[in-house]
Design a binder for these strands. Structure first.
Length: 732
RNA sequence: GCCACUUUAGCUCAGCGGUAGAGCGAUGCUUUCGUAAAGCAUAGGUCCAGGGUUCAAAUCCCUGAAGUGGCUCCA
């Protein structure tokens, strides 16, 4: 009979099977009252789960022992809340709404559903849905689980006519889907999750109340949800498959109490104030103009200061590491990108090619169709086919892409990548193994046609400047070069005080054939990436299938104010490019060898990085990054002249400063400067002028530091800026 | 690209069939002031664009653009 081991190591034995709730009751009535679910041998389960064998049991309650919200409890609450919301939506819109998939997420839950033809769900329905959710929670109905044999369950679902649920059931049973035939369907459930029964959860009494096919687990009754509400609407695809059914995704969130839900909503509102788009407007850091184009950033003077400071900073670090700075144009011939393989492989996410006017006129006079024009742009010459196929040793360019030279349409592309230009620089001169590695760096601006719905302030744009570099090295040099890249990233993040990032190592998907390069090379490169990542001292994940087609990579990922993840820096190993561009160096054996290329961009793009940085600092930048480092505030116009001398002294030391010579009183000037988040205010009145002093006020400090000699202030601030200190540290 | 929502003064927003509004900002005048806004005055608008309904449209309908939150994508 079961011996139950509790988290503190103690055991309880029972002489017959018991439910987790009964164990909780045996421990104490308060625990039983607080219990929302349980973990059996680490697996989250219903509180009603019957334990008939020895096991480790933990009772899940709202809060952990140190009074923190329990993640498992939130999971249970939100999973149940998803059911409650679905019921509410069916009550409001009608039972014809077909439910598909409704899991909990990090911040709440969603439910994907297919609406009956002609019906739409809009935010106008939210009040009614929220009201119904509140009612169901108030009714405190018990959540009842029941299981039926597979056959019976499938028959039940078939009779209900919901193909999505039927599909879920078939996958849970490990059966091939009879209704979904998307490419990604290949047995996602896996053998471990196969079962012989299907489970249903009723929100109340089976047969009497609302119910749903569900694996569970759930809280014991709807009242245990506390507070839930619907948040937003989105569209989604069945199985995330673009070619499959479009579903309506309804997002909601739930918390153990109304107070916690309110706190979450408040926190969301506050996060919005820290959004880089809001701060960017307030502090005039950047501008996006419809007339210029979607996703194209205009860097205003203030934002340009920040960007320039970062570029100067990283440029200095690159020199220390032996990089060479290069400059290359923003466009290149179409054939260049056919050689690199970017065109037309990534055609959908590039700006269309630029075709010379004469060529266009000629095509028009010939009555050429758009399809024909596309064909002529996409095609390659037999010459290019031959050389690429020879170099890569396989059928890289199939015969059907080859068209006669006189049919080829010449054109240029706004560059989507900097690497082809850099490859051409490397290839423009002979290289000895003694010169390797060759590190070419450029703040290279690239253009990509991101889907319009993806664009987002500075973090997802169509034109951006990578802090790009390509390291042409020997295979033996790969580990050391990766290490060098990572140490650069570490230096940058440390200087900026950014600690909250994660590292992702993208590896091959062992089953896919899309990769180029030999298995041996891949093994070595993946090993080098993993070893380098281990030395970082930051947690990292290995993600098979996330590699680029030409090599493994290490990515740096950060979160924005509302918790979205963005990839910043990346380090990628590439065996492909040197082959395609026929690059070589002369080895000690006096023979030509292929270099390996490492692509790396520690900031990723200046646009995204600055966007993330604005949110990281909430606009309150350290002095060295601030567009305006000091604002001089004369008490009245009588001290304007002295203030002018203060400005001169600051500017002579290279400090960015302006004077507020307006007719506001000092209170007003202080408020305005504080709102602009300027690091330092130098307040000057007659008393300061007499002593050649300034009264310095530091951002975030209520009072000034007292009067200090002007030259001391200038020297202290200049030091702080030169050393790129992360915090404001000028002291009297 | 798909779904929902949004778009009114430089900024934040109200108005939602009947003469276009507020606060902040800007400009001018008064005030000459010691640390998060002194007072008064003035200017400022194709109400995102185009079409439609109506005696009358910022307001209702259609189409499009841009933005926001998701989905999908991200060399």
């Amino acid at each position: 009979m079961p011996i139950i081991t509790l988290p503190d190591g103690s055991t309880k034995s029972f002489d017959k099977p018991v439910s987790a709730l009964e164990v909780a009751q045996a421990i104490g009535p308060r625990l039983a009252q607080a219990a929302l679910g349980c973990k059996v041998n680490g697996e989250l389960r219903d509180l009603s789960t019957v334990l008939d064998q020895d096991c480790a049991l933990a009772i899940v309650t709202e809060k952990t022992r140190d009074k923190q919200p329990d993640k498992d409890a939130l999971y249970l609450i939100r999973h149940t809340a998803a059911h409650v919301m679905a019921e509410a939506i069916q009550d409001v819109l009608g039972p014809q709404v077909q439910l598909a998939y409704g899991p909990p997420t990090d911040t709440g839950f969603f439910y994907d559903m297919a609406l009956p033809p002609g019906k739409t769900l809009s935010t106008d329905h939210f009040d009614a849905i929220n009201k119904r959710i509140a009612q169901i929670i108030a009714e405190n109905r018990p959540i009842t689980r029941y299981e039926v044999p597979a056959e019976q369950g499938l028959a039940k679902l078939k009779s209900e006519g919901n193909k999505y649920k039927l599909d879920n059931a078939e996958r849970a049973l490990g059966l091939p889907s009879s209704v979904y035939n998307g490419a990604k369907s290949a047995d996602q459930a896996g053998p471990a999750q196969r079962s012989t029964h299907l489970s249903f959860y009723a929100t109340g009494q089976p047969g009497k109340n609302w119910e749903d096919l569900c694996r569970g687990p759930h809280v014991p009754s709807t009242g245990r949800i506390g507070a839930a509400r619907v948040m937003s609407l989105a569209s989604s695809y069945w199985h995330g498959d673009e070619n499959s059914d479009r579903l309506t995704r309804v997002y909601g969130t739930a918390f153990p109490s109304q107070a916690e839900l309110d706190a979450y909503l408040n926190q969301l509102a506050e996060a919005k104030q820290r959004d880089h788009r809001v701060i960017g407007k307030q502090l005039r850091l950047f501008h996006i103009d419809e007339d210029v184009g979607q996703g194209l950033i205009l860097w205003t003077p203030n934002g340009s200061v920040m960007r320039q400071e970062l570029m100067t900073f990283i440029g200095g670090e690159l020199r220390k590491q032996g990089y060479h700075q290069v400059f290359t144009p923003h466009i290149g011939r179409l054939e260049l990108y056919k050689t690199s393989g970017h065109f037309p492989y990534y055609k959908e996410s590039q700006y269309p090619p630029i075709v010379e006017r004469d060529a266009l006129d000629k095509l028009m006079s010939e009555g050429c169709s758009c399809a024909e024009m596309t064909h002529r742009l996409d095609g390659v010459s037999a010459r290019l086919q031959r050389s690429l196929n020879e170099r890569t040793g396989k059928n890289t360019i199939p015969d059907d892409r080859v068209i006669p030279e006189d049919m080829l349409l010449e054109g240029f592309m706004l560059r989507p990548m900097n690497c082809p230009h850099h490859a051409k620089i490397f290839g423009s001169a002979p290289h000895s193994y003694r010169d390797m590695p060759v590190r070419l760096a450029e703040f290279g601006t690239v253009y990509r046609w991101e889907q319009s719905g993806e664009l987002n302030g500075m973090t997802r744009v169509r034109g951006f400047t990578q802090d790009d570099a390509h390291l042409f090295c020997t295979e033996e040099q790969i580990p050391a070069e990766i290490q060098g890249c990572l140490s650069l990233v570490k230096t940058i993040f440390a200087t900026l005080g950014m600690k909250d990032y994660r590292v992702r190592v993208g590896l091959r998907d062992p089953d896919s054939k899309k990769y180029t390069g030999s298995k041996e090379n891949w093994d070595a490169a993946e090993k080098a990436c993993l070893e380098a990542a281990q030395t970082l001292g930051v947690s990292f994940t290995q993600e098979p299938g996330e590699a680029a087609f030409y090599g493994p990579k290490i990515d740096f990922v950060v979160k924005d104010v509302i918790g979205r993840e963005w990839q910043l820096g990346t380090v990628q190993v590439d065996y492909n490019m040197a082959i395609r561009f026929d690059l070589s160096y002369i080895g000690p054996d006096n023979k030509a060898h292929r270099p390996v290329v490492i692509h790396r961009a520690p900031f990723g793009s200046m646009e995204r990085f600055c966007g993330v940085l604005i949110e990281h600092f909430a606009g309150a930048f350290p002095a060295w990054l601030s567009p305006e480092q000091v604002r001089v505030l004369p008490i009245s116009e009588k001290t304007n002249e002295y203030a002018g001398r203060v400005i001169d002294a600051l500017r002579a030391a290279g400090i960015r400063t302006t004077m507020d010579a307006g007719s506001d009183r000092i209170q007003g000037k202080v408020k305005i400067a504080a709102e602009m988040k300027i690091p330092y205010m130098a307040i000057v009145g007659p008393r300061d002028a007499e002593q050649n002093a300034v009264s310095v006020r530091v951002r975030g400090v209520e009072k000034d530091l007292g009067s200090m000699p002007l030259d001391r202030f200038v020297a202290a601030l200049a030091d702080e800026i030169r050393e790129r200190r992360a915090t404001l540290g000028v002291k009297p």
